[in-house]
Nucleic acid binder design. Structure first.
Lengths: 379, 379
DNA sequence: CTGAAAGCGCTTACAG
DNA sequence: CTGAAAGCGCTTACAG
């Protein structure tokens, strides 16, 4: 009951043993007679003693804590990632310290310094663009694993998805529907994910002639994506006759850039927030999806099956990625050797209803456009 | 450069001063001559010395760490809340330890014990249903502030929104449109938020006669809400004639419960996930919103303005709530006296397009139903 | 303006 | 099976 300040010593004194014996009972190390053990347990209970992790960490020169640093916890992708890592690490005795950096290398640095001061066991990081993490830094964070993005040039295990292939598959899908002008609304130019997805996108388009690929870099937010998409759509003919506040569909506006183009008829969204921005921009322009503009998102979100049409996406295996990152960290902490470099967890193209042939423009009246049934999802 | 193991002593030795002098330079406490100061700084730089937070915390018997314990970080509401708290606390030197408890009191207890072992400065908690937190526990967590939900009977400051009033306003809105059978798809029965919202709901209905209020408790997830909503809608007449796979609209199915009812014509969703579930159930039943079922959500989400119709919501001021909770904690940590009890941050009813008169059933052909313009939002 | 000593709570060798 | 001693890295009084 003496809540005054129970320590390993107060417990030891009460039982008439040494502090090390209490420590042994606490940690299950060494040999302790059953009788002593029971007495110690009773005293712990009586005093309401709780071990102090700080004393323990100081002695061990290591804190059983793993930092999780992401670009934006407001993005559901990162929230799910955190949850998956937490789930994998729960029960292992590690505390998770979640940190946000707004994709800003300076904030990332500040957060890393804070983490480092605890002498953590490990760090799972989605490096910010232009990440400040250097090879010299690495030991300070114990074991380091990167997720989603890679740390170019650093000897760190990484968990990623097949960016090139899956964005390539999305582009291929759109091409197969007859789209000739396709836009990728991408993330920050310097992010490894952006570069990889852009490569996959361009490679897929390069397999054919007469195609035009447009890439717009954004900050990855809904607002940023909406602005980029709106600008691209401004070269499109006005709203279709059936839309609200319709303008003459025959009056093709001249391309702002001087290209002989009527603007993209299909868009790929970099993440769920960007996809929101694209859908919003399409609506704001008075255009319809998929009749006027086809959309494929990257990373699934709950609203996408609710939307009409349901949004087709490249479903990124967030949970698996987080779980694998957690496991790699656990392996490293257990002293196992883990080779640096990327582990690829494949994404899946989920066809729903947001892709149609551009020829369907003004043809399909209102309801669902049939998609080649391959993986139908949701209700 | 000697990355071997820089401590306050190695720095002191290099400069030829005592450890305390280094400590003084580090903390800006006491008086240090400019010359000594510069020399210490130079040695710190040269050795790549970083203070060890563990040693500091052990001496201070307090760790500059604030725990943030929420029910489910996968729910965007909590992710936003965490972000708001983090933003408010950033720059204060406190680390945030985010913890999840899946709304399970046992997991909550385990997480709390882990946090407690660090001797944290504070805790911002969304108590789980049946929270294990007791008055005797409180001191172990330093300063405690609850958010969203309250800790009944504990002397803790809380930040909440005006549950009763805002749900009451939503119910009133639906009543004014002529709905006589309204359902509240609520959260866990024992959560303080559920109880308060339920009270507000029932009070609003009690002001009139001939109304029927239905409350369904769920686990607050999309799946749970969808099941509850689907069950309620199963007593509704089948899909309208214009819907897909239509059944005869005149064939009213008998009420499963024996009530002479055709099921609710309006639903209020407990949180954004529940609202997703409701919308999904309406679609799955082949019904339309708002023609067949009106919907008002609680807590805004990005997809709601994108949806057709855009979903009307009680917009909960998440950012303000998180910021206020953060501020209260900072005040407490600064030694200011903060009275226990709730602080109420009001929510706002945002009218979009998911509410219509039940009389509109089968009348309004397809497009938007005009809502009384009061607060139009989004694009 | 600066330093010698003690101690925060624990665990790690080292002895018995 | 158990204990005395030392030390993890830092800061707090207390002296000068």
């Amino acid at each position: 009951m003496a809540e005054t300040k129970a320590t390993i010593y107060t417990v030891a004194r009460a039982v008439g043993v040494s502090a090390q014996t209490v420590s042994r009972v606490l940690n299950g190390t060494g040999q302790v007679s059953e009788k002593t053990r029971a007495a110690v347990l009773a005293a712990i209970e009586a005093q309401g003693y709780r071990p102090n992790a700080v004393g323990r960490s100081l002695r061990a020169s290591r804190t059983p804590m793993v930092g999780v640093l992401v670009a934006d916890i407001g993005n559901p992708f990162y929230a799910r990632l955190h949850r998956a890592i937490e789930r994998r690490l729960s029960g292992s005795g590690y505390s998770l310290m979640l940190m946000n950096c707004d994709d800003d290398a300076r904030i990332e640095r500040r957060q890393l310094e804070l983490l480092r001061s605890y002498r953590p066991t490990g760090l799972v990081i989605v490096p910010s663009v232009g990440s400040s993490l250097s090879a010299a830094d690495l030991p300070a964070f114990g074991h380091v694993v990167s997720v989603s993005r890679v740390l170019e040039g650093l000897p760190v295990p990484a968990v990623v998805t097949d960016e090139r292939e899956s964005v390539g598959a999305a582009a291929k899908e759109l091409i197969s529907y007859g789209h000739t002008e396709i836009a990728l609304i991408a993330g920050p130019q310097k992010a490894s994910t952006t570069r990889a997805r852009e490569e996959g996108f361009r490679a897929a388009l390069a397999r054919h002639t007469g195609l035009r690929g447009i890439v717009r870099h954004t900050d990855g937010t809904r607002a940023g994506a909406e602005a980029a998409a709106a600008e691209l759509l401004s070269t499109r003919p006005g709203p279709t006759a059936t839309g609200p506040s319709a303008t003459s569909p025959s009056a093709t506006s001249p391309a702002a850039t001087g290209h002989t183009t009527t603007g993209p008829t299909a868009m790929i969204g970099f993440n769920a927030l960007v996809t929101e921005g694209i859908v919003s921009a399409i609506m704001a322009a008075g255009l319809r999806c998929p009749e006027d503009v086809s959309v494929i998102g990257f990373t699934d979100a709950g609203w996408m099956t609710l939307h009409r049409p349901p949004i087709s996406v490249i479903d990124q295996p967030v949970e698996e990625m987080g779980a694998l990152a957690g496991r790699l960290l656990l392996d490293l902490a257990a002293g196992e050797s883990v080779a640096p470099g990327p582990r690829v967890v494949p994404s899946t193209l989920v066809r729903r209803g947001s892709v149609a042939s551009p020829a369907a423009h003004g043809v399909t009246p209102s309801a669902q456009v049939a998609a080649p049934a391959a993986k139908e999802e949701g209700s």
